[in-house]
Design a protein around this nucleic acid. Structure first.
Length: 555
RNA sequence: UGGGGUGUCGCCAAGUCGGUAAGGCACAGGACUUUGACUCCUGCAUUCCCUGGUUCGAGUCCAGGCACCCCAGCCA
């Protein structure tokens, strides 16, 4: 355990501890550097929690920096959503909001400096030619015929690139490193390209844009980042990260550290494929509750606390791994169990008429708002002669292990009375449409004075005094654990969304607002969807409760 | 077949000087129960990718293998 928090230690914390102990740094500065080309997902949450969490725990600073160097893919819409999501997760960048595009002038000057040192040149090779010259994994590349242009010529050409004199794609600025390097990243990487498109922030001021490798290390350095944490696929780029800083930037330099990105079972994490789901209408937008985006999880009813807890508990390491989705759900339930008010909600109603209960009578019974939290208090719920119970809580011919309602059997209605099933009414097709029962007035509140026990407690709502609502049940979007392989049509789960239109919830929920979360007792956690209207609430099932019975009956 | 990484329970993941395998999830039993939920007990790697070696002793050191991931965008 770390001394400062209850967050388990990891190799990055070890590095920071050493840097602080050795006096290399007095304080740490990290950063979360999203490219504004899509919505944030649960994988980003791991990075956000890591970077902001480190800053918090070490009393340092964490910057939010938009890595906006590719105007063709980036949009302001994404910037807004990213900021909203980071805030929602519970983190605050304070004054430290930055854009790589704000450094364009500085970056340009540093590129000029590199040219002056003879370490960068303007190359006229076409993209195809550059690829050919690069060589392969096993063969060295060839040097570009433009590699040895004079500094003066390079300076002139680069300036004219900026001035817009050349065609898009006709020239690039390249670092002059080593075309024979075993690390392909070092084979004279492209530093600047010409793109005559306007940028969402700089407009038409620039027609040359710096590449990631050139921008990122220098942006880190400019912001005095101490630990630049990124994912494993950038490990090869670290050599270039360090090379650029060594050439043109004074010490101390930030240190790049790579960790394994998050993978989750049954979950697609690539932005490209998520975009595909949205564009093909397979889901209803980026915030579809089945999406792993933060906006989707938010709409589904996940809490920031649960996601933060999850991010901490999965750990940080360098081995590629895939976390079981059940672990995310576990963190969610752990949070909601403590915080979500309880309510009665019957998903698939079955009417029960209590024959010995007076017609027209309504009485109010006291119910605990949250048994896990004594402070939560109680509420009154209406009870009447006609109620609804869950269809699956009744079986005409119950197997041994089934101890809910059955003909002749007595069960408890939560916070209400014991009832005994006396009759079963069927329609013409033989479907069970209604139950008849009697109740024991002595068991009000749910316990019998004579001490007799019942095996089951059922949730219920009064038929008249309940609210008809829509409930949306979700399952994994994909039916395979690893959706990164296979074609969409083969791996999509056709039952990822089930809409229930006949559900009923207790009257107390009538003023619930989008985002409000409840535990429908014995069912799961539900949250009010923004699709709700004043006269019809829509609930999303965030997660079902653990269900031992479904395992017993083999489901 | 070049380079960079990683390999500890079904899934994550600790394991600082070599000293005799944490914890969580999942799973399986049991207790409790006005949520078959929660909670609480119990079980769950004689073994750390493999093979040798060093050592009184190795997941930890050495040597050699094997497997998997990343890199040939004017994407990030």
């Amino acid at each position: 355990m770390d001394t400062k928090t209850n967050v388990p230690s990891n190799f990055i914390r070890d590095i920071i501890d050493e840097d602080l102990a050795s006096g290399k740094h007095k304080a740490i500065v990290t950063r979360f550097p999203p490219e504004p080309n899509g919505y944030l997902h649960i994988g980003h949450a791991k990075s956000i929690c890591l970077n902001f969490g480190l800053a918090r725990d070490y009393n340092g600073t964490c910057h939010l920096r938009f890595d906006d160097t590719n105007p063709e893919k980036e949009e302001t819409e994404y910037i807004e959503s990213i900021m909203e999501d980071v805030r929602w997760l519970g983190f605050d960048w304070g004054e430290h909001l930055y854009y790589a595009s704000d450094y364009f002038e500085q970056l340009y000057n540093l590129a000029v400096e590199l040219i002056k040192q003879g370490k960068a040149y303007v190359c006229d090779l076409s993209p195809e030619e550059i690829r050919k010259y690069r060589g392969t994994l096993t063969e060295p590349g060839k040097e570009s015929p433009y590699r040895n242009r004079s500094v003066a010529e390079n300076l002139d050409l680069f300036e004219r690139m900026r001035a817009g004199e050349f065609e898009e794609g006709s020239r690039v600025l390249r670092a002059k490193i080593d075309m024979a390097s075993p690390n392909i990243v070092m084979r004279d990487p492209t530093l600047y390209r010409i793109r005559k498109v306007s940028h969402h922030r700089t407009g038409d001021k620039w027609c040359i844009y710096p590449m990631y490798d050139f921008t990122h290390c220098l942006s880190d350095a400019i912001e005095n980042i101490t630990h630049s944490i990124c994912t494993l696929e950038f490990e090869n780029n670290r050599a270039l990260y360090e090379w650029i800083l060594e050439q043109v930037y004074p010490e101390p330099h930030p240190r790049q550290i790579e960790f394994a990105r998050l993978n989750l079972t049954y979950t697609m994490m690539s932005k490209r494929k998520l975009l595909q789901l949205v564009e093909q209408g397979i889901v209803n937008g980026w915030d579809d509750p089945r999406m792993p985006t933060l906006s989707g999880l938010r709409r589904r009813g996940y809490t920031p606390a649960a996601i933060r807890d999850f991010a901490e508990r999965i750990g940080v390491a360098k081995a590629n791994s895939t976390v079981d989705y059940a672990f995310l759900e576990h963190c969610l339930r752990e949070d909601l169990n403590k915080t979500a008010p309880r309510a009665m909600g019957v998903l698939r109603p079955l009417k029960v008429v209590i024959e010995n209960y007076p017609e027209g009578q309504v009485e109010y019974l006291e119910a605990l708002n949250n048994p896990q939290d004594p402070e939560a208090g109680t509420r009154q719920i209406p009870f009447a002669r006609e109620i609804y119970i869950e269809q699956e809580d009744f079986m005409i011919d119950p197997p041994k292990k089934f101890f809910r309602l059955a003909p002749g059997r007595e069960v408890r209605l939560r916070f209400a009375y014991f009832i005994t099933c006396t009759d079963v009414i069927r329609d013409d097709e033989g479907n069970i449409v209604e139950l008849r029962a009697t109740y024991d007035p002595e068991t009000k509140g749910g316990s019998a004075p004579d001490g007799r026990k019942v095996k089951a407690t059922l949730h219920w709502v009064a038929a008249e005094h309940s609210l008809p609502v829509e409930v949306r049940l979700y399952d994994h979007l994909f039916k395979v654990e690893d959706p990164s392989i296979g074609e969409l049509e083969d791996i999509l789960n056709p039952d990822s969304l089930e809409v229930l239109t006949e559900s009923r919830v207790e009257l107390n929920l009538k003023d619930a607002k989008p985002g409000d979360k409840f535990q429908f007792e014995r069912q799961g956690y539900f949250c009010v969807d923004p699709d709700s209207t004043p006269d019809r609430l829509v609930f999303n099932r965030t997660a079902a409760l653990r269900d031992t019975w479904s395992k017993v009956k083999g489901n």
